[in-house]
Write a protein that binds this DNA or RNA. Structure first.
Length: 593
RNA sequence: GCCUCAGUAGCUCAGUUGGAUAGAGCAACCGCCUUCUAAGCGGUGGGUCACAGGUUCGAAUCCUGUCUGGGGUACCA
């Protein structure tokens, strides 16, 4: 709110002095002004850098700054000019107003910056062939936080999980189940050993054995009937095991997502695209539009016409579709879904799929859609640190799954850690650290701040024991009285806030805290626009730090109920903002720790 | 080879329309609990922003090249 107010004042100042500054379009000039926090606190609360205006105004920044500064109301801003910078100190009146606004607003940070956006957000998307691994945890945290953020900015977001249940991986899964069944039954069939230099197609994980055991509880006789001297699975067996495996794995994945506080709106099955002929239809569209050709017995997509480095196979020479073809059909479906309701398609992919982007964009364009609406967010991969050593994750080896990790360290730690760094950076997940309740774990720091606020609010309404006299003293505030005060809250009712702080340190801490609370409104649209949820994670840490600082220099629950009430507004507001910020990350805000 | 992400304090990282003397957490050292949660706070030390050029009033930020590390470069999914 403060930044917006400052912008309004600057706009007025620019209009007022347009002639003096040689400005033909003051509003355009406003967009050039940089507003930021000053490097050094003694300079002020906000700094306006006027240097970018120099060319437009044909004047030096040191000449421009005083002119604009003279147009700012000295009362609200107490501006001071240093070189090309106007440093302003926000008046207590404005700080009170900002605090009141944040205390009373329905949802802190909520805005309409993305009101026009109808977004189909696809993430996590995995094979139903086994447990999700730790890398998936990053997409869970990233995608869900992004959805929450964009929704908070007024966007309509549909969260979608694309189930890759159509490819050969499903067959490999079924084959693996088959061999495990035979092993358990002791018929002599067993999972083949890996062959040096060849990619191992089977899933050797323990979970396959577990699934096989359950399957045998009801299908033992059928498996025995299917078995044969060569121990090859007949097509019936493969079909049954495929369907069974898919159900089991998908159920596990859904349960895990719920554990992670992530609820997908749509679980979209790739195989339905095949079953309903959509893959065929999309291929026909591409052919009709002249985007394909035949060569070497295969059908190719001329993706290089749209910037891809080479053309791509759609139908293999054996007559099967490639994965790409189904994926194109999927995107065809997305663009057409609900009568073309969506105008933004965001996919979150691992960096290992980076090379896949040009062909997908090409496909969308070839189908006649706008490729700019398709936005692919790449996340760098996750390294797992165990005993101080980096380990690579492989789905087919014995590994720590996302489920194990969540059980081990809790959803909050996993989610916070996964979004605490920009997705452009490869992330090291240190299991010991995330599980520890130490200083090195930022989740606890933030949650502790929230719990402290909650504790102060509780204590305000409870009778307290005086440790000196051993007498029970009445509660400082009545809850009903507090509620009434909150309802009628106004900037004027907070006058005591600054006036009663004689200590310079406490005043500075309070000022910083309110400024930080207020800046939440700027952080949310910024994080959503840039698709960078880590901005919010960092914000929660900064905000918590400001709170802890303030807490150490200013007592809230003082004997004077009037004053306690006023200070409690800061705690109450802070708690709301902190809870809201954590909610945007999908992290819980505990009432006590 | 080509594409791509990264390289900032001992460690992990912020720094995104180019702007003031480059920031935070952890680790190290020194302090702070009779009072609202010390899972906290204050202070000190710590930097050739990988390297070299370029663009300009100004570069950690933009461009070119080099080096190092991650990922990719299928008629796999």
């Amino acid at each position: 709110m403060i930044k917006q107010t400052l912008l309004t004042h600057l706009r007025n100042a620019l209009h007022q002095h347009a002639a003096q500054l040689n400005l033909t379009d003051p509003d355009a000039a406003l967009g050039l002004l940089n507003i930021e926090r000053p490097r050094q606190a003694e300079h002020g609360d906000y700094a306006v850098n006027v240097s970018p205006l120099a060319k437009l105004a044909r004047m030096g920044p040191p000449q421009i700054a005083p002119i604009i500064a003279s147009g700012l109301s000295a009362e609200d801003w107490s501006p001071s000019v240093i070189g090309g910078f106007i440093n302003v100190r926000v008046s207590p009146a404005l700080l009170r107003q900002a605090l009141t606004t944040m205390a009373l607003v329905t949802k802190p940070g909520q805005n309409t910056s993305l009101a026009e956006t109808q977004c189909l957000l696809e993430f996590v998307s995995a094979n139903p062939t086994g447990p999700l691994h730790i890398g998936h945890g990053r997409w869970v945290a990233l995608g869900d936080s992004l959805a929450r953020l964009m929704t908070h900015c007024g966007a309509h977001v549909t969260k979608e999980f694309y189930i890759n249940d159509a490819g050969s991986q499903m067959n490999n899964m079924a084959q693996s189940l088959w061999y495990r069944c035979l092993e358990i039954l002791g018929t002599g069939g067993k999972l083949p050993e890996p062959i040096e230099g060849q990619k191992y197609p089977f899933y050797p994980g323990e979970y396959v054995i577990d699934a096989a055991k359950v399957f045998l509880e009801t299908h033992k006789d059928r498996v025995l009937a299917w078995d044969n001297p060569e121990h090859q699975a007949p097509p019936d067996a493969i079909d049954a095991l495929k369907a069974y495996g898919k159900t089991v794995m998908l159920d596990q994945q859904k349960t895990l997502m719920a554990q992670c506080r992530l609820e997908f709106d749509v679980w979209f099955s790739e195989s339905t695209l095949h079953e309903q002929g959509q893959v065929k239809a999309t291929l026909a569209t591409l052919q009709d539009r002249g985007m394909t050709y035949e060569q070497d017995g295969a059908i190719w997509f001329a993706s290089s016409r749209f910037g891809d480095d080479q053309d791509r196979v759609l139908v293999k020479s054996d007559g099967n579709y490639t994965y790409l073809t189904a994926d194109i059909a999927y995107h065809d479906n997305k663009y057409r879904r609900d009568n073309g309701k969506y105008n933004r398609f965001i996919n979150i992919w691992g960096a290992d799929h980076h090379g896949y982007i040009p062909r997908m964009k090409a496909a969308v364009e070839a189908l006649g859609f706008n490729p700019d609406q398709l936005e692919i967010l790449l996340g760098q991969l996750v390294n797992l640190i165990v005993d101080g050593e980096r380990t690579r994750m492989g789905k087919r080896k014995k590994m720590l799954t996302l489920g194990d990790l969540v059980d081990e360290v809790g959803v909050d730690a996993v989610r916070f850690w996964m979004v605490s760094k920009s997705q452009d950076t490869a992330l090291d997940f240190n299991v010991e650290l995330a599980a520890s309740s130490s200083d090195e774990n930022p989740v606890f720091y933030v949650q502790y701040a929230h719990a402290r606020c909650a504790s102060i609010l509780r204590n305000a309404f409870q009778p307290r024991l005086d440790t000196n006299t051993q007498e029970t003293r009445p509660a400082i505030l009545e809850e009903t009285q507090w509620q009434a005060y909150l309802t009628g809250l106004s900037p004027d009712s907070l006058v005591a806030l600054f006036e009663t702080l004689d200590n310079k340190q406490a005043q500075a801490a309070l000022r910083e805290l309110i400024l930080k609370i207020d800046s939440f409104d700027d952080r949310v649209p910024e994080a959503a626009r840039q698709r960078l949820p880590h901005i919010i994670a960092r914000y929660t840490m900064d905000l918590s730090a400001e709170f802890h600082r303030f807490y150490n220099v200013c007592r809230i629950l003082v004997p004077d109920p009037q004053l306690a009430q006023v200070r409690l507004v800061v705690i109450y507001t802070l708690k709301r903002v902190l809870a809201q910020a954590l909610d945007l990350l999908g992290v819980s805000a505990p009432e006590q720790m």
